[in-house]
């Protein structure tokens, strides 16, 4: 048994838990056509990171608040004005990134820190992060197992879900909040720019091969674990940046899944 240094133990724990979390939510991201949601939320979080640096406080909390605000705003713009989520994502993405860059320009000398949020830095992971990730993962599994049918019907058609008497607003915003939490927690591991791969790839791969939603969810989680575990292992062995290696792994897994004959 290899004796990993503490930061590596944290990284392994975070990689596994985030795989469980992001690949579960990945399914809903894909059925809702929300591929860019991860991008929007993570870049909004970057605005929060910059604010944290400027104020001289830990960027974690502002990042979380920015991510939640972004998720809820995207949902509200969709539900109140009928725009597809992509529209609000596009606006918030560059808006928050603009805010982040302006704030960073006031706080000179932090560019290397900015870099570690953009592309991930496992050295910044703490025990507290791990506990938070574990908590949100538990919450997500509880929510999805209790509300799975409703979530599926809502993804199929919101108006029909409403006529079946389901609490569509609650389901919708809960899903967005969970996604915002998951994405913001993944930033330290894979970074603002790379997180979206982990949100999109697992379920997309599973959907190529299966049609039953239970098996899709399971395969998606398996694919996520493979990407995170494999990516981290390769990064460790070859001494590469972990976040970037995971993103590359995710991309490769996706393209390989495309050339595997189509048994669906």
């Amino acid at each position: 048994m290899v004796n990993f240094p503490l930061f590596m133990q944290y990284a392994i724990g975070a990689a596994i838990l985030l795989a469980l979390l992001l690949s579960l939510l990945s399914f809903f991201v894909v059925v809702h056509n929300w591929s860019f949601l991860g991008v929007g939320i993570s870049h909004a979080a970057f605005g929060g990171v910059a604010l944290g640096f400027l104020l001289g406080v830990s960027p974690d909390l502002p990042a979380l608040l920015f991510a939640l605000m972004a998720g809820l705003t995207i949902g509200f713009v969709r539900r109140r004005w009928g725009f597809h989520e992509d529209v609000a994502i596009g606006v918030i993405f560059s808006f928050a990134m603009g805010v982040g860059v302006v704030l960073f320009s006031f706080s000179k000398g932090y560019t290397s820190d900015a870099f570690s949020y953009l592309f991930g830095n496992i050295l910044t992971l703490t025990k507290g992060d791990l506990i938070a990730i574990a908590g949100v993962t538990l919450l997500a599994y509880l929510f999805v197992s209790v509300c799975l049918k409703g979530l599926l019907l809502m993804a199929l058609n919101e108006e029909v879900a409403y006529t079946r008497g389901l609490p569509v607003g609650f389901l919708y915003y809960s899903l967005l909040v969970l996604l915002a939490l998951a994405v913001v927690l993944a930033i330290k591991l894979v970074g603002v720019i790379l997180v979206t791969a982990l949100v999109v790839v697992p379920a997309s791969v599973a959907l190529r091969f299966l049609t039953g939603y239970r098996s899709i969810l399971l395969l998606s989680i398996g694919v996520g674990l493979g990407i995170n575990g494999g990516g981290l292992a390769v990064a460790y062995l070859l001494n590469l940046p972990p976040g970037a290696t995971m993103a590359i792994t995710a991309g490769l897994v996706f393209f390989v899944s495309l050339i595997i004959p189509f048994p669906r």
Binding site: L152, G165, T211
Partner: peptide, 15 residues
């Protein structure tokens, strides 16, 4: 919607 026909119909029965 990427599920099977049977799933789609079953989901419609959710209340």
């Amino acid at each position: 919607f990427p599920l099977s026909v049977l799933d789609v119909v079953m989901i419609g029965g959710c209340s």
